[in-house]
């Protein structure tokens, strides 16, 4: 399992780096899907098969489909890539990279001095246990999450609706 973890970890990091550096938006999306799939493997290797399945279904499936859908709707093509070339210059990476590096150092320091570390056995915690925990201890959280989803649905509908009166006016 360790080998699987490390291989997929390397794939995840590399594909994520590719995501944030690509100029073509469709390429970036494909790399993101790779990254998410690799992440699903990591979850599996950590003994969380249920979450791994969700990662594939929801993230790599549903959410990415949304992205692709929007990209196709906006009909972004070569023009957009040209634009990205102007926008994305290597020297712009310096500041954010330094900031992220500092944050990374701090996090590493916190992780390694935090104490309660130790090996992960990778003993699977199955869907049954998750379900029991979800609908017992975290029932209220589930309710709230459902409300959040509903709010997201309504909000997305409201925003996505084309504004007729304005179209007539223009």
């Amino acid at each position: 399992m360790t080998v699987v973890f490390w291989i997929s970890a390397v794939i995840t990091v590399i594909s994520t780096v590719m995501v944030i550096t690509r100029r073509n938006i469709v390429h970036a999306l494909l790399y993101l899907i790779v990254s998410l799939l690799a992440m699903a493997v990591i979850f599996f290797s950590l003994g969380a098969p249920f979450v791994a399945a969700l990662e594939v279904i929801v993230y790599a499936g549903a959410i990415m489909v949304l992205f692709i859908f929007v990209v196709m709707m906006l009909n972004l093509g070569e023009r957009s890539t040209q634009q990205e070339r102007r926008w994305l210059r290597p020297q712009m990476m310096i500041g954010p990279a330094i900031l992220a590096a500092i944050l990374m150092i701090e996090l590493g320091y916190a992780i390694f001095t935090g104490g309660s570390g130790g090996p992960i056995t990778g003993e699977p915690v199955g869907a049954k246990q998750v379900g029991i925990s979800l609908f017992d201890t975290y029932l209220l959280g589930v309710e709230l999450a459902s409300m959040l989803l509903l709010a997201g649905l309504v909000g997305a509908y409201h925003l996505g609706r084309s504004d007729r009166s304005e179209e007539e006016g223009s």
Binding site: P96, L99, A100, I102, L103, E106, L107, A110
Partner: peptide, 8 residues
């Protein structure tokens, strides 16, 4: 991000 760095 800067605030997060400082607080962490």
């Amino acid at each position: 991000a800067f605030g997060a760095v400082v607080i962490v």
